[in-house]
Design a protein around this nucleic acid. Structure first.
Length: 459
DNA sequence: TGAAATGTTGGGGCG
DNA sequence: ACGCCCCAACATTTC
């Protein structure tokens, strides 16, 4: 009777799990293990909310496993030591895990592979990273040709079904499942595979057809809000792509494109790990950023005086999630208007986002900062007023997150400082008292950013 | 997956 | 009737 170990990292699901499938093929008893790696726990001490979501996900996975006649074993410690100990205790012949491409994960897995027989399986992305590359086998650094090559690959097929029975070895001692100190959002983002599929189905049923037109509207529920679930593999990328393919149409194509962006950034971080520390383009490392401690604090707290930016940051603080358009607007404001190093914004986002992930977060921030692969050109500066008018036309998004502006009518909502003192009184919102005055003048800030970038590029 | 600056055009007010 | 100016409205270019 052979036992195999399924080492769970960011694939908290039973359905469409290639590592689990490989573990089942390798033995008739599967031991599901999650290792609480002190190095990751320490790094995540400021990302407590995401850690809480992960822990809630572990409890959900354990419940699912128990329905299959198994259970989740949690142990704390260095993964190589924990796993080699478990191999000895259980007599397991092999360890299977889903490949993870972040620099730390690769170092860790290389170490683990020296201690135990480790086999990595695909699944984090739809297509294996090595499958999407140029004719000369070098990686793509521009999204459009990458996505063309991605789409040209044969579809990998139907997502694997979840096992109904998953026999495990006789009980081994483990830790209790960790509780979720920071996960106060259990009702907003219930963790687990079942919830991920509920969301996917609801999105496909009600919003995917309009996605092409509504995905940028911050005031509408036009997006899938699946990112935290994809982040921890409570749903697989293939399951999402499969659903898009079944749905078909312009909206599904636009959503598929976003999923391809996700894989593009996984690939970029894999092939160019330096992007987690500095700009992709060496020529753009000379930009002189401002320290601006006070303005940075205003940005993090959502008191910049620009309603869309403040709504975005407050949504993040309140929910652990932010609409993608809002992410771009808030990021552009920090990097261009405040001229603060994108890495500080990236770190703040990653601390607070439930979906916070090295690859996607760095990709997005470097895109905004204009320093990345296939990035927005440096002179593209978002105007928060125009972005607000365009993507929150009735101001519902701002009203939801910035209650001080409740009485301010639509024409002033995205630029409340334009109200006369009379109007401020009339609408019960005194600028500088009830709601902050803008901490920078956008027109001036824009010119300052262009100058700093020109100097940094060395033109 | 921008926005501002600059250029062009054409209608209308007006001397 | 005509030229002149103003300035939307739109197009192009520049950052």
């Amino acid at each position: 009777m052979a036992t195999t170990i399924w080492w769970i990292r960011r694939d908290l699901r039973l359905g469409d799990n290639q590592a689990l499938a490989a573990a089942r093929a390798g033995g008739d008893r599967v031991l599901p293990v999650f290792v609480l790696d002190p190095r990751l726990l320490a790094a995540a001490r400021d990302g407590r909310r995401r850690l809480g979501f992960l822990f809630a996900g572990l409890r959900a996975l354990d419940a699912d496993l128990r329905r299959c006649g198994n259970r989740l074993l949690v142990r704390r410690g260095d993964p190589a030591r924990v796993l080699s100990g478990l191999v000895a205790e259980s007599g397991a012949g092999a360890v299977y895990a889903e490949a993870d491409h972040s620099p730390y994960a690769r170092r860790r897995d290389a170490r683990v592979a020296q201690a135990v027989p480790l086999t990595l399986a695909g699944g984090l992305t739809v297509h294996p990273l090595e499958a999407v590359r140029k004719a000369d086998s070098s990686p793509y650094t521009v999204f459009t040709p990458y996505s063309r090559a991605w789409r040209a690959l044969p579809f990998p097929g139907v997502p694997l079904p979840a096992p109904e029975h998953l026999p495990g070895p006789a009980g081994l001692p483990g830790e209790g499942l960790p509780s979720s100190p920071g996960h106060a959002l259990a009702d907003l983002f219930p963790a687990g595979e079942a919830e991920a599929h509920r969301r996917l189905e609801a999105f496909v049923r009600t919003a995917i057809d309009d996605y092409h037109d509504t995905r940028n509207r911050m005031d509408l529920a036009g997006t899938s809000v699946l990112s935290p679930y994809l982040r921890f593999g409570m749903i697989s990328a293939l399951q999402a792509v499969w659903a898009a393919r079944q749905a078909g149409g312009q909206g599904a194509e636009a959503w598929l494109n976003e999923l391809i962006w996700r894989e593009f950034y996984v690939s970029i971080l894999h092939h160019f790990p330096h992007v987690q520390r500095e700009s992709f383009h060496p020529g753009l490392r000379g930009i002189v950023w401002r320290e601006a401690p006070g303005e940075f604090a205003d940005w993090t707290a959502g008191r910049t005086g620009y309603p869309v930016v403040d709504a975005a940051m407050r949504q993040l603080l309140a929910t652990g999630w932010m609409h993608n358009r809002a992410r771009m607007i808030a990021a552009s404001f920090l990097v261009k208007d405040l001229l603060v190093d994108w890495r500080r914004g990236e770190q703040f986002f990653r601390q607070h986002l439930l979906d916070g992930d090295l690859a996607a977060n760095h990709g997005g921030w470097q895109w905004t900062a204009g320093t990345g692969t296939d990035a927005a050109p440096y002179y593209r500066v978002f105007n928060p007023v125009l972005q607000g008018r365009k993507f929150d036309p009735q101001g519902d998004y701002v009203h939801r997150w910035v209650p001080e502006l409740a009485g301010v009518p639509g024409e002033f909502l995205h630029e409340p400082w334009c109200m006369s003192v009379e109007q401020q009184k009339q609408f019960h919102c005194m600028i500088g008292k009830d709601y902050p005055a803008p901490i920078v003048d956008h027109a001036l800030a824009r010119r300052r950013a262009l100058e700093a970038y020109r100097a940094g590029v060395g033109r």
